[in-house]
Computed example of a mutant assay.
Amino acid sequence: MRNLTDGTPVDACALPGLYAYPAELARPWVRVNFVSSLDGAVSVDGLSGGLGSPADKRVFGTLRRLADVILVGAGTVRAENYRGARKPGFGRDAPPPIAVVTGSADLDPASPLFTDTAVAPIVLTTAAADPGRRAAITAAGGDVAVLDDLTPPTLLAELDRRGLRKVLCEGGPGLHGDLIAADAVDELCLTAAPLLVGGGAGRISHGPGGPPRAMRPVALLEDDGVLLLRYVRARDQE
């Protein structure tokens, strides 16, 4: 892996510094991480794994260990068969929890999300979700938070209440789109896989429209044709 700005090599030990969150956060900082093909596809045969690479996996693992919480939509949890994060966070004894956004609470209590994790997942839902499903999630060890709504301000306020300010969102595109529309995305980490996929695969965000948000690069890495890009909001560099 090398730094494209000056051509210097970058090893795994340098990644935590390159991707460090801002110090002394007064509010949740939302970092979104996606991998896509060169033509914008977010999946191959419905899964993101077909776009991955060793370099992408190293950055993916680093981002998880830097985060206080991993925020993800229920559709992505089901499609990718999510389980708990495995490695402890930097400077912590436990991995970050997975926080799942679901209006229906339609999660399988027997899935790896609950059975293969060292930290209880947080399930962010509302009172409109089926009470039986909510009870089953609680019985499986899930930490159910019943919120007034699932808009980004409400979700982030709940994470802030829990002291979880270093937020890593891993999708899906719908949740990412909602965060963009709410002007809540501080940072995007994008891996561009050197592939052309075609077909009908989706893009990394979809949802309500709005004005474009200016982003600025803060890290540009390359490894065997794979580009690993880190952008932050232009307002956060002023």
Rank of each mutant, 00 (worst) to 15 (best):
R2Y: 11
T8Q: 14
P9V: 13
V10C: 12
A12L: 09
C13D: 13
A14K: 04
P16S: 10
L18M: 14
Y19L: 14
Y21N: 02
A23S: 14
A23F: 01
A23L: 13
L25H: 01
R27S: 15
R27W: 02
P28Q: 07
P28I: 12
V30I: 04
R31F: 01
D39I: 11
A41Q: 07
V42G: 05
V44H: 00
D45N: 14
G46F: 07
L47G: 07
S48P: 07
G50D: 11
G52T: 09
G52F: 01
S53I: 08
P54F: 06
D56G: 13
V59N: 10
G61V: 05
L63W: 02
R64C: 13
R64V: 13
G73M: 10
G73T: 11
A74W: 01
G75W: 00
R78F: 03
A79G: 07
A79Y: 00
E80R: 09
E80N: 12
Y82D: 09
G84F: 05
F90V: 11
G91S: 11
P96A: 15
I98L: 15
A99G: 11
G103E: 08
D108L: 05
P109I: 12
P109D: 12
S111H: 00
L113K: 04
F114N: 03
D116I: 02
T117I: 10
T117K: 04
V119S: 04
V119N: 04
P121G: 07
I122K: 03
V123D: 05
V123M: 08
V123L: 06
T125W: 05
T125I: 07
A127T: 11
A129S: 06
G132C: 11
R133W: 04
T138K: 10
A139N: 02
A140R: 01
A140L: 03
V146E: 15
V146Y: 00
V146N: 03
L147E: 06
D149M: 06
D149A: 14
L150A: 09
L155G: 12
L159V: 10
R162T: 13
R165I: 08
R165Y: 02
V167T: 02
L168C: 07
L168V: 06
E170Q: 15
G172Y: 02
P173Q: 13
H176D: 06
H176S: 13
G177H: 09
I180M: 14
D183W: 00
A184V: 06
V185M: 09
D186N: 14
E187L: 12
C189L: 03
P194W: 00
L196R: 02
V197L: 09
V197M: 09
G198T: 04
G198Q: 05
G199M: 11
G199V: 08
S205P: 00
S205E: 05
H206C: 11
P208D: 10
P208S: 12
R213S: 15
V218W: 00
L221Y: 01
L221P: 03
L221N: 07
E222T: 11
E222I: 08
D223W: 01
D224C: 13
G225Q: 03
L227P: 01
L227V: 04
R230K: 13
R230E: 07
Y231Q: 11
V232G: 10
R233C: 08
R233G: 15
A234G: 02
R235I: 10
